[in-house]
Structures are given as C-alpha cells and as structure tokens.
Amino acid sequence: MREPYPGDLRRPALRFCITLLLALMVTSLLIDAAHAATIEPSHGRERVVVAIAALNKGTEVTDFLVPYGILAEAGAEVLAVAPEAAPVTLWPAGRIAPHMDFAGFDAAHEAGADIVIIPAMVERGDEAVLNWLRDQAAKGALMVSICEGSSTLAETGLLDGRHATGHFYEHENRVRRYPHVEWQRNIRYVEDGNIISSSGVSASLPVSLLLAERIAGRGRAAEIAAHYGVENWSAEHNSDAFNIGMREMATATKNLLLGWPRADILIAVHEGVSEVDLAFPLDFASRSWKSETRLFADKTEVTTRHGLTLLADVTGDAPKRADVIRLPGDEGKGSLEIESAATLREEMLAWIGEKMGSGTAHFVAVQLEYPVPGGMR
C-alpha cells in the first residue's frame, strides 16, 4: 500500500481553509448588504428625517398621505414641505397646511433630509421643486418617487442613465420625454443607487413599507403592514393587467356626461385620524367622474395622528343629500362606517360599486393601479 504523499495530507486542510474563507467572504457581503439597506439618522440626529415634497397648487393625495403616515409609524420625523408656506391643494381632493416651505426646511436642516419623498404633482416641471430636489440629492438624501413623481424626478436629470418606473398609463409618454432613463414595466418599485421609484398610486403602500423596514426593522414593518391589511411589500407587480381601454373610457364618458346631479361625498376627519386611513377613501371617492368629494369636520383645522394639519372643506352639519364616510376611530353615523384599516380599501370600493355601479368601481381602481377583487395581497 502506497504511503500518503505529504501533499495529500494537506489537501483536506486546504479545502477546509478555502471553504471557511469563502464562507467568511459571503457572510461579510451579506452583512454589508444588510447594513447598506438600513436607513439610520445622519448628522447626529435622533431620528431619520423624511421630507415629503408638495406642490402648493396640486399634489396627489395618496402619494402624499401614505408615506407620511407609514414612515411616521416607523419612527421617522416626517415633515411636509412645499415651495410656499401656504395651503397645499391635494389632488383630486383635500387640502393640508405644510409644516414649512423649502427655505424653512433648509434653515432647520442644513445638512438636508435623510429621505425625500416625491409624490405626483399637477406640474412636473415646477422650477422651485426641481431645484430643491437637486439640492437635496446633492446633500445625500435617498430620493423616493411615488407614481408619477418619477416624471418630476426625471425633470431634474437625476434619473438619467438609471432604471426607474412610474404609473402604467404614462409609460409611453415617459419614454418619449425622458429617453435617457431606462423605464421599467411590471414592477412595484425600482432601486438604483440612491433613488427608488415606484409604480401606480397604490404602490405608495409597498414602497413605504420597504422604507419602514429599513428604518425600523422587518418586525416593525410587518406590524404596520398587518394593521393595514398588506401581506407583502415585494416589488412583484403586473402593470400589464391594468388598462384604460374602451370599457374604462365608456364608463368615464357616461359618468362625466350623465352623472348628474353629482354625488356629494364627505370624508369625515377627526382629531388623530390616521393619514393612511384617510388616503384611499378620499382618493377613491374622488375618481368616479360623477361625484364631488370634500373633507368634513367639526372645525376648520384637524390634526392627524402624526401632526399634519388638514383643512376641512365643510364644517358643522352635513348637507342632507351628502353621503358621509366615517373612518376607523370615528364613532359618528354615516353612509359608510369603516371599522378596520385592514379592510378599508375593499370596503370603500365595494360601497362605490353599490352606489355607482361595478363599472365605476372598476374604473376607480384601475386609475390607482389597484387590483380588484381582493385588494393588495
């Protein structure tokens, strides 16, 4: 029998060392990746500072309210900022008072925000907004667009050479307007460097939960998600399932021309109302093309759960023919009294279907890129 050659004795030890080295390298990479995915307060702050940009003349309501509420629940300091320290008109309904204008934010946070949220705005090319976004990006903020906030972000030039996404209906227009951006379909959100972009309006939920996970950890994000009835917040999404075609256009035309008198829908807001609970009912109710939707309260100004000032359109007694929608936590009587944040979106769409027809409920959901039946699961 041949005696082992000394090199043979070294091979098992060598293989073990190589395996151990590779394992350590992989572990190191995983730790680095996890660390990179974590969002921590910068510049000695106690909390992550989130600035949600708003255009005074018009900012999409769900794009704004959902990240506001969810990131505040994740422990961030969330501030509403706008070009002017004047009321912000939310589109398609609602008004808020921003915490400060851009100049005020810059004075209070010279180093810039940790995260900047860019909702869809009625004008994607407002120069004051674009200049402020460029400045925040230069200071190192993570830039996050919701829905067609990606078009505003593209106007800054910050998306050139990057991958991004936005609302399905504007895809071809974005490709034409911003040819230097690699626009993606069929995905909830796209991360490229220090920029995250998300798809249709309903993507405000998963992308906000992604940020919540990075701020507060997976466990806390899961708690928030469960409260709002969201089972996962992955990037998986099929935007090709949504379409504004003949069916939707027929509904829109019929509602626009024949939907008279307009349904008068009042979304009741109370002190401490959840920003997330408010977002979808206000948005859904406003997109039927046969209704007028307004904020209703006991007083002119109402403070939300996390310190946002809502400006009521109607105070006192509700008009007799109005439908009043009551949100979770509101003990008043209404045409619809929603008790659970987890089923709120489905309840609201079901109510629209009962009042205005299933075609209108479908039309409303498609606009927000929201899957029905069953909601986001």
Rank of each mutant, 00 (worst) to 15 (best):
R294T: 12
M249H: 14
F280M: 11
A342D: 14
A342K: 12
L258N: 10
I325Y: 00
K320H: 06
A268H: 07
V230M: 07
K333W: 03
D323S: 14
K290A: 04
A225K: 09
H306E: 09
V314C: 12
S274D: 12
L258K: 14
I325A: 05
K290E: 12
L310R: 00
V273G: 02
T343A: 00
G229N: 03
K320E: 06
G316I: 03
D330S: 15
R262W: 11
P328R: 02
T343R: 04
N243V: 03
G219S: 12
A322H: 01
A252R: 15
D264R: 06
F242A: 08
H227K: 13
F284M: 02
G316D: 12
D313T: 14
E236C: 01
N243L: 06
F242C: 05
G229D: 05
I215P: 15
N255T: 05
N238M: 01
A341L: 07
D283V: 08
V314S: 06
R321D: 10
A221W: 06
G329W: 06
E275K: 12
R321P: 02
L344M: 04
P281L: 04
K299V: 00
S239R: 03
R247G: 02
A235K: 15
F296W: 03
I338Y: 00
V324L: 02
D283Y: 08
L336N: 01
R326W: 04
L266Y: 05
A226R: 15
A226Q: 15
R305V: 14
L310H: 05
M249D: 03
K290W: 01
G219P: 00
E301Q: 12
A312H: 00
K299A: 01
L308Y: 08
A279K: 00
T300I: 12
L266V: 12
L258V: 09
G316E: 08
T251H: 07
F280W: 10
G307M: 01
G332S: 13
D277E: 10
V314I: 13
R321L: 07
V273R: 05
R326Y: 13
R321G: 12
R326A: 09
L278R: 11
H270E: 10
L327H: 06
E292N: 13
I244V: 07
I338F: 01
F296D: 10
N232F: 09
E223A: 09
F242G: 06
W233Q: 08
F242Q: 04
L327M: 12
L336Y: 07
T303C: 03
G307W: 01
G332L: 07
A226H: 13
A216W: 11
A318W: 00
G334L: 02
I244E: 09
R218V: 05
A285M: 13
S288K: 02
K254I: 10
L344P: 14
S234D: 13
E339Q: 08
E213W: 11
F242Y: 14
V314A: 01
G307S: 11
R218N: 15
A285Q: 06
A221Q: 10
D330E: 11
E292C: 04
E339K: 08
L257Y: 03
V273Q: 07
E223G: 09
I265Q: 01
G332W: 08
T253N: 09
K290D: 05
S286Q: 03
R326T: 04
